[in-house]
Amino acid sequence: MSGYPLETVYLFVLIISGSLTFLYILLSDILDGILDVPDHPLFSPQLILSFFTVFSAEGYLFEKYTGMPSTLIGLLSAGIALIAVLLLHFFVFIPLRSAEASLHYTEADLEGSLAKVIVPVPADGFGEILIERTSGAVAKPAQSLKNEEIATGTEVVIIKMENGVATVAKHDPYHI
């Protein structure tokens, strides 16, 4: 290619694709917002950049350390890169997308949840509750449904969420 050894071309592509991958990681949210590109799972920028990074790295290493023909090196590098990108897609990116979606909750999702009082709820005021979720614990201000005092450590059920404040009642596991 243009008089340069293939080893140099692979190295040049590796540097460029590695740099673009790093920049994409840093700026992906901004770029996704500006460009508004439709999201196709197999043709995402991170997978394309990963393919070129792995392809050029393998090509460089094979050219430098083996005596295989360049055509075989190109095909072998492309195969390894394709396998690496598919593994990355199925075992990293897909689980990350589903984890990202499961961390989000709305106030309506909290209604009916059990919580523990961490700051006593006075009869006519506000206390605080702690809601244990799979993604972590969430603390919310709370008021009593029946205007009764609720002590610290009491298990409560969230009846209603309104403007970030939980209306709670004492939880009685034996009463349905």
Rank of each mutant, 00 (worst) to 15 (best):
V121Y: 00
H104I: 13
L88A: 07
L75S: 11
S70C: 08
E107Q: 10
I80W: 03
G74P: 07
H104W: 07
K116F: 11
G112V: 08
E111L: 01
P95Q: 09
V85W: 01
S98A: 05
L88C: 08
S102Q: 15
A84Q: 04
K116L: 13
E128L: 02
G125M: 02
T71Y: 14
A115Y: 09
E128F: 02
L75A: 11
L110Y: 00
V119M: 00
P95V: 09
Y105T: 09
D124S: 11
G125N: 04
S98C: 04
P120G: 03
L114Y: 04
P122R: 01
I118L: 11
S77T: 08
P122M: 05
E100V: 04
G74Y: 12
G79E: 13
I83M: 14
V117E: 09
F91N: 02
S98T: 12
S77Q: 05
E107T: 03
M68C: 10
R97D: 09
A101C: 09
E111Q: 01
I73E: 14
D124N: 15
A123K: 15
P95C: 05
G112M: 13
K116Y: 10
E128P: 10
V117A: 05
F90E: 13
R97G: 06
H104Q: 09
L72K: 11
Y105M: 07
E111R: 00
I94L: 14
S113G: 03
F93H: 11
A81V: 06
K116W: 05
S70Y: 13
E128V: 02
D109A: 01
I118E: 11
I73F: 06
L88P: 07
L75P: 09
F91H: 03
L75M: 14
G79W: 10
I73A: 14
L114H: 08
G127W: 02
V119S: 01
S70V: 15
I83N: 13
T71N: 14
L87C: 14
I83E: 07
D124H: 10
I80Y: 03
A81S: 14
G79D: 13
S70Q: 14
I83D: 12
P120C: 02
I83Y: 13
A78F: 04
P95K: 05
F90K: 15
E111S: 00
V121D: 00
S98Q: 13
P95N: 05
K116M: 12
G79Q: 14
H104N: 13
T71S: 13
I83F: 15
T106V: 08
L72M: 12
E107K: 02
Y105L: 14
P69I: 13
A99Q: 12
E128S: 11
P95L: 04
A78N: 05
V85M: 10
I83Q: 14
L96F: 12
I73Y: 10
S113I: 00
K116Q: 13
S113M: 04
L114Q: 10
V119D: 00
G112D: 10
F126Q: 02
V85R: 02
A81P: 06
A78I: 03
E107V: 01
A123C: 10
S77F: 09
V119P: 00
F93V: 11
P95M: 10
E128I: 01
L88D: 06
F126M: 02
V121P: 01
R97E: 08
L86I: 08
M68T: 12
E128N: 07
F126V: 01
F90C: 08
A81I: 05
E128D: 10
V92G: 08
E100R: 08
L72Y: 12
E107L: 04
E100I: 06
G125V: 02
G112S: 11
